[in-house]
Design a protein around this nucleic acid. Structure first.
Length: 868
RNA sequence: GCCGGGAUGGCGAAAUUGGCAGACGCAGCGGACUUAAAAUCCGCAGGUCCGAAAGGACUGUGGGGGUUCGAUUCCCCCUCCCGGCACCA
């Protein structure tokens, strides 16, 4: 046998055949690396003064409810993969974590288990932090934020004072949402289908209370407009916020009450988006709680009783969450109001479908051009007057009777005095201007968004830093006296109003203005205040002179990527945007939006339903880690579905992932030869067919995974690609088919794979896996004899030339149906490909005796021959 | 009612969006190793029909139309599912 000159060593034997259990021992490997990671406190720390480009990746901070659930694992697995990817790409990464640790569950736990809220909360935090560490999430714990600590909530109080100074925090008595189970007020955003967001089956009651509000409406317009700039936010979230803000352009018009008036005066302002139809207004409808109604019923017991009835109906419908289903009722007041446009007297009604908290609580009723007004007018036999006719293409043809109600904008005015023949849009402009000129109205914008009520009649929250003095009224706590400390020794109950009001040491204070006795505010802040700005605190978490340093925040903001559940699309994400705009106007920051890119991951369900203790379908992360390891749990939640879709947990699915991790481990363990010099030599070309295939696959895989990290984020396909690479590598390195010769029992191997190529494949395989399965990746990195820290190892680059196929298989269609395939070189010209296709045996038989009508050749894709 | 997102094998999904439908994985089937099982490895696999087999024919991405040589992808109509808003004037 001639001596073949070998420049590079190759894999020539099947290693280590003696192994009793070939399962990968994840616990051993993960425990080893867990210990090592714990020893390096600065491992995941962001660099304070860095010339590197920054990248701020953030996952929504959890409420420390006790244990992590799979939804958390999914959320953090996505963020962690991204953070690790960015580290490997040389960025200065900020990847912090904290605890949204004020809130009701702590109080409920205190009541049930007689454990103080603070103790309960801190225990949960310790537990969940340990879980996060075991799962291998790379957080910079030196910046940990815990919102229930005075070091944090003092800045809530500080912000509150600043907002108060600027008129953005104010106190007023108003109807508020009250959850009887939480025994506290809720913001509008916390009411879901008429029920409490924490108690899906508890209808929210309406109560009249003095409350603190933040003036979110001041930013309504900016909050709406800036949504257009958030192009890297999911359309869904932007739509939800648009709906929530609910901007509506229209006109205010003052109708004058005819006859005697009361304290509410004689002006009834109505809001309409269709002032063009005002000549068709045949009544004015008031909300039952409209102030003018109070005047009208003052001396009219009969009317008062009827109005009471309407109020009851309205409240019932509201509490049942189906205000839209209410049966329309109204009562005539016997009084009239004057339409300022034509001086006409129209009857004044009170109706149960008019809402006091939208617009002005009064409308003009135009039955001919509004669905609801039409229905109402039919029911009560009110006049229906047409003032808009549909346009016709044929000027000769006039449509005298459009089908009613005729609600579209596209028409011309009639019966409208000087506005006849104007288009609706023209008329709206001219009539609004007319109203403004004559002082009885103006163009205006109405929002659905309401100011944010932040007072909570609960204990476990940030005390509102305000005092009530008999002499000086409402007095803010001076900045130097912050924080107002939440007392710790408390009897927590859910009855009897704000718990803090029962602590005399807390309540009794001194007025900073007059030195006399003052009473402290005993309500606490909504916990959504805490989460509205926490991500700024991460940038400068230990600052005791300011919530954060502006220059440092400027370096890190905006957040490059924020990841969390879509359930916060309105609540947290609208409050945070408001807070950022308010802080910008205070000069603390320069960015107008907190988050550049938002990603909302899908829910994790089990057996088709959201996991919950009561349903008994909870999959415990701890159990999964114990059984399969952290890598497997993380990889599985990324692999099972694209991250933005819901994922139904399958126990068998994670087993498949476990097998994959085992195959990776065995592939490296069995084939790594870092002690051989050839392992470290640069790869020499040319390569054999098999080797070249493997090399190509490697570069294709690097490209696929890298591309997906650039925004598409289909990590499920990234992981598939890595699996394919491993399959290919196993085939090439170990040979496909049986592993042993059935006759002789000798091991069978594939063609020669140069050791340098194998090294290349193994190193890159580990690097590609590093963001998803960090424990295994670290173990293998070490096994490969690599010295540097894998966390900051350079992300692999692909070579487009090496990723390119030299020969491709082109499908040949005849009349659009796949009939054959031909193999051509990748850069073959159209003619060559066509010639090859036409020369193909099968194609020749199929088209024999037929006329070729058309030949289509898409280079690199396919050939289609159209025959007759 | 308005707005947004979906519907692809037994299951999770892929097709980077006009160009080979079903990659990867689960479950399944067959085989190797084993006394046996587990673990591991190799192979098969959308459906229907024809064939002993190799192979072939037809069909197939919620339904119906259309554009195109060619449609999961584009256009029109419809059904169902998920989410948001809703007598919002």
């Amino acid at each position: 046998m001639p001596q073949e000159e070998k420049s590079e060593a190759t894999v020539t034997e099947r290693p280590n055949p003696e192994r009793s259990d070939e399962r990968y021992d994840a616990q051993r490997v993960e425990n080893k690396w867990f210990e090592r990671f714990q020893q390096d406190a600065a491992l995941y720390a962001a660099e304070p003064d860095s010339a590197k480009k920054k990248y701020y990746v953030l996952e929504m901070l959890p409420y420390p409810s006790g244990v992590l659930h799979m939804g958390h694992v999914r959320n953090y697995a996505i963020g962690d993969a991204l953070a690790r990817y960015m580290w490997m790409n040389g960025y200065n990464v900020l990847h912090p974590m904290g605890w949204d640790s004020f809130g009701l569950p702590a109080e409920n736990a205190a009541i049930q288990n007689n454990t103080p809220p603070r103790q309960w909360t801190l225990r949960n935090i310790a537990n969940m932090k340990a879980q996060m560490k075991r799962l291998g999430f790379a957080y910079d714990w030196s910046r940990e934020v815990t919102t229930c600590f005075p070091e944090y909530y003092r800045w809530n109080q500080w912000f509150f004072l600043k907002l108060f100074e600027r008129g953005l925090a104010y106190r007023k008595k108003s109807k508020v949402n009250w959850c009887p189970k939480c025994a506290t007020v809720l913001a509008n955003e916390q009411v879901v289908n008429g029920c409490c967001w924490r108690h899906e089956d508890t209808p929210v009651e309406q109560r009249e209370l003095e409350q603190w509000f933040l003036r979110t409406t001041k930013y309504a317009d900016e909050l709406l407009h800036d949504l257009d700039k958030l192009e890297h936010w999911p359309e869904k979230v932007r739509t939800m916020q648009r709906n929530w803000i609910g901007r509506s352009e229209g006109t205010l018009v003052d109708f004058k009450l005819v006859g005697p008036t009361g304290p509410a005066g004689s002006t009834i302002s109505v809001f309409t988006t269709r002032v063009d139809t005002i000549y068709g207004a045949t009544s004015v409808q008031l909300a039952p709680e409209h102030p003018v109604v109070k005047d009208l019923t003052a001396a009219n017991a009969d009317l008062r009783a009827k109005v009471e009835q309407l109020i009851t109906e309205q409240r019932k419908a509201k509490e049942a969450g189906d205000i839209g289903e209410i049966e329309k009722h109204g009562v005539p007041t016997g009084r009239y109001a004057i339409n300022p446009f034509n001086g006409e007297k129209v009857p004044l009604w009170v109706a149960n479908y008019i809402l006091m908290d939208y617009g002005t609580g009064a409308i003009m009723s135009v039955p001919a051009h509004d669905e609801r007004d039409y229905e109402f007018a039919k029911k009560y036999k009110l006049e229906i007057r047409i003032v808009v006719l549909p346009r016709s293409d044929d000027p000769e043809e006039t449509v005298a009777e459009p089908p009613l109600p005729f609600v579209t904008h596209d028409g011309l005015l009639i019966n409208s005095g000087p506005y006849n023949n104007l288009s609706c849009d023209d008329a709206i402009q001219k009539m609004s201007a007319h109203a403004e000129k004559h002082g009885f109205g103006k163009a205006t914008v109405t929002y659905r968004l309401k100011d944010w009520g932040i007072s909570r009649q609960r204990y476990w929250g940030t005390p509102i830093p305000m005092l009530y003095c008999e002499k000086d009224g409402i007095v803010p706590v001076p900045e130097k006296d912050l924080p107002v400390i939440l007392p710790e020794k408390m009897d927590v109950t859910l009855t009897g109003g704000s718990p803090l009001s029962r602590v005399p040491e807390f309540v009794n204070a001194t007025c900073p203005k007059c030195g006399g006795p003052a009473r402290r505010e005993t309500d606490t802040m909504d916990t959504f205040v805490d989460s509205s700005w926490y991500f700024y605190r991460y940038t400068d978490a230990h600052n005791d002179r300011a919530p954060f340093d502006s220059a440092i925040a400027k370096y890190w903001f905006p957040i490059d990527q924020y990841i969390g559940g879509v359930e916060h699309a309105i609540l947290h994400l609208i409050y945070s945007r408001f807070w950022t705009k308010a802080m910008r106007d205070m000069g603390l920051i320069e960015n107008a939006e907190p988050v550049e890119r938002l990603f909302t991951q899908g829910m994790v369900t089990y057996q088709g339903a959201a996991m919950s203790k009561s349903r008994g379908n909870v999959v415990s992360p701890d159990e999964m880690v114990a059984r399969y390891g952290a890598d497997a749990a993380r990889l599985y939640v990324l692999f099972a579905a694209p991250p933005d879709r819901d994922l139904d947990w399958q126990d068998s699915g994670i087993e498949g992932i476990q097998r994959f991790l085992g195959r990776v481990y065995r592939f490296v363990e069995g084939n790594a030869r870092p002690q051989e010099p050839d392992w470290h030599k640069p790869l020499q070309s040319p390569l054999g067919i098999s080797a070249r295939r493997l090399q190509r696959k490697l570069h294709q895989t690097i490209k696929r995974v890298t591309d997906d990290f650039q925004g598409r984020w289909h990590f499920n396909t990234c992981i598939s690609a890595i699996m394919e690479l491993l399959n290919e590598a196993n085939r090439r390195a170990l040979g496909s088919g049986p592993t042993q010769d059935p006759v002789t029992g000798a091991p069978i191997i594939g063609d020669d794979i140069p050791l340098a190529l194998l090294a290349d494949v193994q190193r890159n395989l580990v690097l590609l896996l590093a963001p998803f399965a960090p424990y295994l990746a670290h173990e293998l990195w070490e096994m490969l004899g690599e010295k540097g820290n894998l966390l900051k190892a350079a992300w692999p680059k692909y070579d487009a030339a090496l990723a390119r196929e030299e020969e491709i298989e082109i499908p040949v269609q005849i009349n659009g149906k796949l009939r054959s395939r031909v193999v051509v070189s990748a850069d073959a010209s159209e003619e060559t490909v066509l010639d090859r296709a036409l020369a193909d045996e099968k194609v020749r038989t199929m088209i024999a005796g037929k006329q070729i009508v058309k030949k289509i050749c898409v280079p690199g894709k396919l050939v289609n021959i159209v025959v007759k």
